[in-house]
């Protein structure tokens, strides 16, 4: 999604001279076009993420709309207090962009993973977090983020384009329609592609509705919640279970009185064997791989 992101930011930056882009010294071979397009509105704040977010808040106070970019763990954890106090409490138009959410940086190791980022950020005041599952979602999300002008976190990963025929319902995008649905899958971010792969199994094809959750905190329309009630619901997310999609969704469903017949959460398990590998390796250890998703869905059909 980084290519789509850079192209969209260049366009937005050219159109709106109040847009500022600050990077925490990252973006080699990816953001040069943004630097060229924005000129003095492109700032490399150095390896100093906390200051980057504080500076962004100060610039936002003076009327600018400010993106802060780094890889996801660096722009989330190090400067959480700056984002909370300086940005969110003041409802400043500062937009954190974290590349490689979840296990996206794979073999780079645990310091480079962001599997608790949404729990940290989506719980803050006045915030919105966007989690594109598909590459073509990045540009419209960025335009929406700038138009909304509120504290935001955008979690980027790597994904294909949205399947044809997708429909938006609040925070959810209906990406696979089933005429004889036996259950529902809700996925967060690019791991949705693993759900689509799992559904290639001929025993599962056509039997499940699949949604992605595009932003947290959730906006769950009541009619959608009740459509899911009484049937199995599987949540798939490359994020820990605490504070993630499954937990936030379950509260919404219970509050609405829309209880699924089964509720299963597949989530990031951290580093259960203390060993490291690429993104697929970590997905498999957490049961987020297509094979395990297929097994889970098959259990719903029995």
């Amino acid at each position: 999604m980084r290519k789509e992101f850079a192209a969209a930011i260049e366009k937005i930056g050219r159109e709106d001279d109040k847009v500022v882009f600050i990077t925490g010294d990252l973006g080699y071979a990816a953001l040069e076009n943004v630097a060229d397009a924005l000129g003095p509105r492109f700032i490399n704040a150095g390896v100093a993420e906390q200051n980057m977010v504080g500076v962004a808040a100060g610039m936002a106070y003076k009327g600018y709309k400010v993106f802060c970019y780094s890889i996801a763990p660096f722009v989330v954890y190090r400067c959480l207090e700056q984002f909370r106090n300086d940005v969110c409490l003041h409802q400043m138009p500062v937009f954190l962009v974290g590349n490689g959410g979840g296990y996206g940086y794979g073999i780079m190791g645990s310091t480079h993973h962001a599997i608790e980022d949404l729990a940290c950020l989506s719980s803050l005041q006045n915030v919105n977090t966007y989690i594109p599952a598909f590459a073509d979602e990045v540009s419209p999300m960025l335009h929406q983020i700038v138009a909304e002008g509120r504290p935001t976190y955008l979690r980027l990963g790597a994904g294909p384009n949205t399947p044809d025929g997708a429909e938006v319902h609040g925070s959810f995008k209906h990406i696979v329609h089933s005429k004889a649905s036996v259950g529902t899958v809700v996925a967060l971010g690019p791991v949705a592609a693993n759900v689509l792969t799992a559904l290639n199994d001929e025993l599962l094809t056509g039997q499940f509705d699949v949604f992605t959750a595009t932003n947290l905190p959730l906006n769950l329309p009541a009619d959608l919640a009740h459509r899911w009630a009484g049937k199995p619901l599987l949540v798939v997310e490359e994020h820990v279970s605490v504070g993630g999609l499954a937990q936030q969704l379950s509260v919404k469903l219970l509050t609405d009185g829309a209880t699924p017949s089964h509720f299963v959460s597949l989530s990031a398990q951290g580093y259960p064997n203390g060993l490291y590998g690429d993104q697929k390796y970590h997905q498999q250890l957490s049961g987020l791989d297509p094979a395990n998703i297929a097994r889970q869905l098959a259990s719903f059909t029995n």
Partner: peptide
């Protein structure tokens, strides 16, 4: 203009305001 109380926030924010100026 800003809530303060956790130390070390004023100078980054102030630098941002100055940069915006």
């Amino acid at each position: 203009p800003f809530a303060t109380g956790s130390l070390g926030h004023g100078l980054p924010i102030g630098s941002g305001i100055a940069q915006a100026g």
